[in-house]
Simulated scan of single mutants.
Amino acid sequence: MGTALFGLASTGALAQGAIDEGQKLFTQAAVPACAVCHTLRHAGANGEVGPDLDELRPDASRVEKAVRTGIGQMPAFTGLTDAQVKLLANYVSTVAGAGR
C-alpha cells in the first residue's frame, strides 16, 4: 500500500479510497473485526463489548496505539501491516462522531 492511500486529501479529510479501505479493515479484514466489538456509525457497526467510538472520538495516535498493543479486553492486532494500522487509525479518527 502506498502512502497516498492513507494520506490526507487537500481538504484535510481522508481521500475516499482511504475511507473505503479503512472501513473494510474495520468491518472485515482485521481479525477479529473491529465492528464485532465497537460501535461506529459510519461502518454500520453496533458492537457492545468495546467503547462506542462515535462517543469516544479517539485521535489517530490513540487508535494506532490500541491496535498495536491492545487495551483491556482488546487484543493487539499483530497481523496488520504498519500501513494497515495507520489506515485504520486514520479512518476511525476521521469518521468517529461524524454526523452527530
Rank of each mutant, 00 (worst) to 15 (best):
A76L: 04
V85L: 08
F77H: 11
C37I: 01
L56A: 15
V31R: 10
S61T: 15
Q84K: 07
N90Q: 13
A29I: 07
A66M: 11
V67M: 08
A33R: 06
G47T: 03
Q28D: 14
A89K: 02
L40N: 05
V31F: 12
V36N: 12
L80W: 03
E48G: 13
Y91T: 00
T81R: 15
V67P: 14
G79N: 12
K86N: 04
D82T: 06
V92Y: 02
A66I: 04
C37N: 03
A30F: 01
D54V: 04
T78M: 15
P32E: 01
H42P: 01
Q73C: 12
M74D: 06
T69Y: 15
K86C: 01
S61K: 12
V49G: 12
S61Y: 08
S93L: 08
A76E: 12
V36C: 06
R62C: 04
V85E: 03
A89R: 00
F26H: 06
M74K: 12
T39C: 09
D54A: 05
L80C: 09
V36Q: 14
T94M: 07
K86G: 02
A76T: 14
V85M: 06
R68A: 14
N90S: 11
H42V: 09
A45M: 10
G72H: 09
L88T: 00
Q28E: 15
C37V: 01
P32L: 01
S61W: 10
L87T: 07
T94Y: 08
R68H: 13
Q73A: 15
D54K: 04
L80G: 09
G72N: 09
T78I: 13
T27H: 05
Q73H: 11
H38I: 00
Q73K: 14
L40D: 06
A35T: 08
R68E: 07
V92A: 04
T69Q: 15
M74W: 14
V63P: 03
T39P: 02
C34F: 02
T94H: 09
A43V: 03
E64R: 06
A83T: 00
T39R: 12
